[in-house]
Design a protein around this nucleic acid. Sequence first.
DNA 1: GATGAATGAGGGTTCATTCAT
DNA 2: TATGAATGAACCCTCATTCAT
Lengths: 195, 195, 195, 195
Amino acid sequence: MRRDQILAGARACFVRKGFHAASTAEISAEAKVSVANLYQYFETKDDLVRALIEQDLASDLALVQAVEAAGSFREGLEMAGRLMTSDTDVAQDSRLRLEIIAEAARNPAIAALVKAADDHLVDALGALIAHYQAKGELSSDIAPNTAARLIGALYDGMFCRFAFGLGDTEELIAAADRFVFQALAAVQPPSHPSI
Amino acid sequence: MRRDQILAGARACFVRKGFHAASTAEISAEAKVSVANLYQYFETKDDLVRALIEQDLASDLALVQAVEAAGSFREGLEMAGRLMTSDTDVAQDSRLRLEIIAEAARNPAIAALVKAADDHLVDALGALIAHYQAKGELSSDIAPNTAARLIGALYDGMFCRFAFGLGDTEELIAAADRFVFQALAAVQPPSHPSI
Amino acid sequence: MRRDQILAGARACFVRKGFHAASTAEISAEAKVSVANLYQYFETKDDLVRALIEQDLASDLALVQAVEAAGSFREGLEMAGRLMTSDTDVAQDSRLRLEIIAEAARNPAIAALVKAADDHLVDALGALIAHYQAKGELSSDIAPNTAARLIGALYDGMFCRFAFGLGDTEELIAAADRFVFQALAAVQPPSHPSI
Amino acid sequence: MRRDQILAGARACFVRKGFHAASTAEISAEAKVSVANLYQYFETKDDLVRALIEQDLASDLALVQAVEAAGSFREGLEMAGRLMTSDTDVAQDSRLRLEIIAEAARNPAIAALVKAADDHLVDALGALIAHYQAKGELSSDIAPNTAARLIGALYDGMFCRFAFGLGDTEELIAAADRFVFQALAAVQPPSHPSI
DNA sequence: GATGAATGAGGGTTCATTCAT
DNA sequence: TATGAATGAACCCTCATTCAT
């Protein structure tokens, strides 16, 4: 309860100012809690950051599960796209995600968290791709996990853009879905056999 | 020059610690310059950041020009991939780029810079794609600028991962090239106009 | 009783960290009591400190009584020395004593307590010395209360050293006894009244 | 210069409130310096404390040298006593000394400093005592270093008392000198041959 | 009587920035 | 131009203390 309230306040502040620029004073004000109280729920500002990051990374799994539940790869992609944009505010989520990745680039502990979450995601998505490759719905020209990694990168890259208001969110996601499907589906690779 | 020397020191520090965590004291130490001296070349730490960002964004244009100079789209992609990895340290560049995007997500002034650079890039890449679509090398199913934006996103997303050491740099870039080409290629290979 | 339980916890913490560095949280944890509960027995941390100091100062009287009960001054000194080292942990007691004196040096209220206890002690010891001076066992060259004060100082000084583990406790106390006796003994041994 | 100014301010504050209760804000105010400036001369409040302690301990050597320079032990004692009381404010010095010893009781690093200084002092004083024992001015009944340690303890104990205004400073020191001399000089140990 | 939750005040430390030289 | 010295503002965190239950 109180803990969640604080996490929510922290999320708002981190989205607005980033991990480093958001002060514990701001966060507690946003969460309508005293600073000292905040420290009864989180040992350290870093701990608070870590908790938020874990919360955020965990939400990725929902996406994969949606894709898994779909009847075809294409459908799964569309479902995932819809889930992403269904959220209250994609730009905010994107900012937090961006902040997380930036923090991972400097803080090895955070990097480990992000890597673990990413591996998890890539494995799940890779398995799915392998499944559809076996069924013939997708081309087998690319290693499943490599494809998964590229899809992950594409989405991350879009989030980077959404984070500071570049382009129309839903439109780009829809285009991305088609783009990915086209890249992976190509039944008969045109002119350049395989490479 | 003194200014460049300071920028170089700043770059090293920002890559290592991020814009917020790198102190002017650290930067001047790295640049072998006194703090007060730094302030004779940059009015503010923010100015220093801005200068570095502009420097960094400008380097993107080289990529587009390489793609433009190539004989085919595919060749252009490969060239771009090679250019990116030819740099001294991709991880470092990626970290700075990531830091820039994260900063853009909070600072509207920086966002404007990044948007302008991105628009520039998208326009150039979009024009190129349109050119190859007209020649039949690429499918016309996708709007050229949308394709350009997706390509940009894919590369940004890969940089995000490189920034904290996820995956093999060159291998992933090569796969990305094929991925992009596959996604955009004309379904009916133009090299077999026989049909 | 609860109160004693808290005092014991406080003693342990104060010995370990000193009055200022020991927090009420630590003390209640050590006493296995909630912080709020502690405040039902002591209005203030200062009150707790004061109570502990009074407890500690009171224990000094036992020493004087031991000396009074002895048959000769020398014997009394030995008895006192034995009492002091018989305690569970001289170093711990010394630390607390030291902490008390240091606190007295800043806090007039505590200073008053310590002075009163010291006066009491000096008077009792002085009376004893006067008694043995009259009997000729001790030299009358020194005012009884001055001698008492010097003896007190010597012991306090030794406690200061014991507090951080300087030297062998029992050995030094034994030497101190001889030292004191030598200093106060009648120049012409009273046991050879022949002259 | 600045450093000394800060040390002086710190000394005043530490005497008044003790190491823990004196805040860096108070110290810098007393030294007429900004807090940030203080931190350019001392890395840490602990460093400041340590510097002050070292300064204080070093001043002890002057005493020993005075005793060494004297023609007889008794004369040396008197000289030392005069030196101690000649200082601007014995009570203040005593408070700082007390604070140092109390800190040594908790902080091993400080304990090491104090022990080293004490060993130095005991050795010097012990050598002197041995010298006068050889000359026959002092009795050989006591080990020189033990005697030195006891003398040190006696003086420390007196300082403890001076620290909170117990008794007349000069009078007690004079009495202590006689006390010590009597204890060590006793040409013919009265009645209790050696023990 | 007992406690978990809550907080205002303050503590040590750092930082971007200025200025006299 | 170049710098050592200086500082106000802020930051993270802790503590003695209170109060509703």
